[in-house]
């Protein structure tokens, strides 16, 4: 249903013009986010998750540049939108929460001022009522004593509280889409659990769509409706959360799921061999080939095309490029699972 689509990313490509060879950090990435859903973007560090997020809101820093593609948000292409209009989209259209809240908050600005600024810039509150709104938002993100905390500086808060403040800032203008880039990676598991619960509640209350970026498959399983798996700048598999966890198709997705500790105590873990690829020197064919237990001759020829397994489920792997669409190739003996 096209009308349900809030954000459609088409063939997004972002390049860092570094020497000696430019690095393609985001390579031909396409996905969509529908109204009210959470899309989980998972991948290891350096796979291009954050650059994807920054590309969507056009905040990629030089030497990086968006080299191609479309980012259709609420019917218009953000990559063809003027900078003043983009400033309105950031905050009012798309809110964001980053991994390291300390870096995103201004150390000499009180908590309340961060929220007030967002409201005033977007004309959603006057100076006189911004403070009251800030207190209200702090209460919504479950900060105790919001009337007092509104006057705190960021360094006076714990990591979990800072992340809540970031969420209050992101939600201030009630944007329909929030991008959360590793919002809980720096936090303890107990605090992580609180923040994830809060994100879920906020999503319901504010009728949000969420792009949740993480490398933690547990967080994805708990939070996402659909999942995109990123490897070396590309989305290699995409599907509903159940398809990805119960019926993974790509050898990398399978390897990741299999490597989670959980088997018998003391047994060896099923590791993925090899090292995380260097984007500056990727192999000519499938970028996972050097680590893939199912590698075939064809894998070294060109990057595999997208195969649709099901309505929601797509994969880029030669194991699944069947000449007869719909037919599934049986699993090869060597596939890790």
């Amino acid at each position: 249903m096209v009308s349900d689509t809030l954000l459609a990313v088409e063939n997004l490509t972002t390049v860092f013009d570094v020497r000696p060879t430019p690095v393609v950090a985001v390579n031909d990435v396409s996905f969509e986010i529908r109204k009210g859903e959470t899309l989980g973007l998972v991948g290891e560090s350096g796979s291009g998750k954050s650059v994807t997020a920054f590309s969507l809101i056009r905040l990629v820093q030089s030497p990086g540049r968006v080299a191609g593609g479309k980012v259709i948000f609420q019917g218009r292409d953000l990559l063809a939108t003027s900078e003043p209009e983009m400033r309105h989209v950031r905050g009012a259209g798309i809110g964001f929460v980053f991994q390291e809240p300390m870096a995103a908050l201004n150390p000499v600005m009180r908590v309340g001022a961060h929220i007030a600024e967002a409201l005033i810039v977007h004309g959603l509150a006057s100076k006189s009522d911004a403070r009251a709104r800030a207190v209200e938002l702090l209460r919504a993100v479950l900060i105790t004593d919001p009337e007092k905390r509104v006057d705190d500086y960021p360094h006076q808060l714990s990591g979990g509280m800072r992340q809540r403040v970031m969420m209050a800032v992101a939600l201030a203008c009630k944007p329909p889409l929030v991008i959360a880039d590793e919002p809980t990676t720096a936090l303890d598991v107990t605090v992580q659990a609180q923040i994830l619960d809060l994100l879920r509640d906020m999503k319901r209350e504010f009728d949000l769509s969420l792009l949740l970026i993480t490398h933690d498959l547990g967080v994805i399983a708990e939070t996402a409706d659909r999942v995109a798996v990123m490897y070396a700048g590309r989305i290699v598999e995409q599907g509903t959360v159940r398809e990805i966890f119960h019926d993974p198709m790509h050898p990398y997705t399978r390897g990741l799921l299999a490597s989670i500790p959980g088997g018998g105590a003391g047994s060896r873990l099923k590791a993925i061999d090899g090292t995380v690829p260097n984007l500056a020197s990727l192999p000519p064919g499938c970028s996972f080939a050097p680590r893939c237990p199912a590698r075939m001759a064809v894998c070294d020829t060109a990057f595999p095309p997208v195969t649709a397994i099901d309505r929601e489920h797509t994969v880029r792997c030669y194991l699944h490029t069947s000449p007869d669409p719909g037919a599934r190739i049986p699993e090869p003996a060597g596939t890790a699972r």
């Binding site: 598991v189 992580q192 547990g218 399983a221 708990e222 989670i260 959980g262």
Partner: peptide
């Protein structure tokens, strides 16, 4: 108890029973 219940299970169908401390 709070610590154990906070670990996210890598299974979308796992029941969620958070125990707050």
């Amino acid at each position: 108890k709070a610590l154990l219940s906070a670990v996210p299970a890598p299974d979308p169908d796992a029941p969620r029973a958070r125990i707050e401390l």
